[in-house]
Design a protein around this nucleic acid. Structure first.
Lengths: 243, 243
DNA sequence: CGGTAAATTGACTGCTCTCAATTTACGTGG
DNA sequence: CCACGTAAATTGAGAGCAGTCAATTTACCG
């Protein structure tokens, strides 16, 4: 477990304009999928759309921006500090996920630091807007429950599949997991940095690197371009099933 | 990681009678703390109170009893299966916790197997009762959100404090965690079985046993009676802070 | 093309796992 | 209350896995 230097993440997000939820192309999987178009007509606090470059922080642990973020495109990691001062990634979230829901409870702050892994398009929804909408549309509360439950399921799966067994199996399971959620065609995924992999499976950077390098040599991973790799799902599955 | 044989847990729970929520002595921390007394006057489906002996299953992964359980006394472990077929404990829950909330979402089954670690007193609340109460009292939905968020916080903490670092530190953190939640006086805790500890920290039974035995020799743990031990919080803290 | 950060590799140490053997604890029946 | 049987806990020995420290190599950005 290496001691990661706490770097300050840049926050030079580009404001893309006021969000137009009623015409959102992916509203079916978003936070407001249940609400009628009329719900978006008048708010006190506006919903804004941003594009964050890779490596920027949407929010920081302990802070309270008073807003949740709904991810439209890209990948976000949630970081927690270990007792030793290292950072551990406790979740990876992509399009359709809503993060920072914890601040809907009064007098709380963000539980994690949320950092983008690539270019991310996300809407910032003030907590006050959520609260007023919830008063008007009880179904929103139901939907929020569903999303929290989804986070919980992911957290439990994280413990069981990425926190158990030898490092090689954990990496293989991580790659298979990313393959499932990948938007790339034909078994392609954006390979994470070794430091991020290490912070996910709870191992050192060197261990993560050795395992990935070995998988490349065995042609379980083949470089396509940049960080895009095509991977052998059957071969990876064989690793998780070993013994 | 040892291959645990799937034993069938006994389910010989004793029915203690119809629950009387309006006179519940610990209602302030229970599921229905927000509701007025009048809410409990008439339900289609009854709320029952049970006493489960140690080692019995409240519910099983994949099953759907259509009820949540509110724990009044005792300790419950939530088990998940790893890809290797072993079992991993993903949460420990005591008085005031409500488990099985996932079945409130339509057409789902329990995500874990819930097994009692000692004698447990719990109320069984049918999902239908929850749903009708929620329609009547919007605050219940709020409160359910709060409880789910609490589960999520515990899961994240689990990953970070019990899934990271060398085994000795994990055990020390586990003991400190149990000490916090302990109802025993003066640093006393009910020590878990080595198998359970191993399933929590993700190590073999032998490793857990060696660490605990060593802690006893170093007088960080002193037997009081049965599985009740008094532990040296400062000494344990020193272990988590090592290096 | 240089400069920096990331990835890889090597060497070595220490931790954890597995397999096996005891030892201890506990509930049951005599 | 004691003997017995079973399950849990402990301990030992050896192999393999993972961590650390340090050196290179590679990738990427002006």
């Amino acid at each position: 477990m290496e001691q990661q230097h706490k770097r300050s993440y840049c926050v030079d997000a580009a404001w893309t304009g006021r969000a137009d939820c009623s015409h959102c192309t992916i509203r079916h999987l978003m936070l407001f999928s249940d609400l009628p178009d009329s719900a978006f007509d008048h708010h006190l606090s506006p919903i804004d759309n941003f594009i964050f470059p890779a490596g920027s922080a949407l929010f920081t642990e302990g802070q309270d921006d008073g807003a949740v973020f709904s991810i439209r495109r890209g990948l976000v990691k949630l970081l927690s500090l270990t007792p030793d001062g290292d950072q551990r990634i406790v979740r990876l979230l992509g399009a359709g996920a809503t993060i920072g829901l914890e601040i809907l409870e009064a007098d709380t702050s963000y539980r994690h630091t949320a950092v983008t892994l690539n270019q991310v398009n996300a809407c910032r929804i003030p907590a006050s807007t959520m609260n007023s909408l919830r008063a008007e549309y009880p179904r929103l509360c139901q939907h929020t429950l569903k999303m929290l439950q989804n986070h919980l399921d992911r957290a439990d799966q994280w413990i069981v599949t990425l926190g158990t067994g030898p490092a090689r199996k954990r990496v293989a399971r991580l790659l298979l997991l990313m393959l499932q959620n990948s938007t790339e065609p034909a078994g392609g995924i954006e390979l994470l940095g070794r430091g991020d992999m290490a912070a996910i499976i709870g191992a050192s950077v060197e261990t993560a690197s050795r395992i990935v390098a070995d998988m490349k040599r065995r042609h379980l991973l083949e470089k396509v371009s940049g960080s895009l790799y095509r991977c052998d799902a059957a071969g990876l599955q064989a690793i998780t099933d070993e013994e």
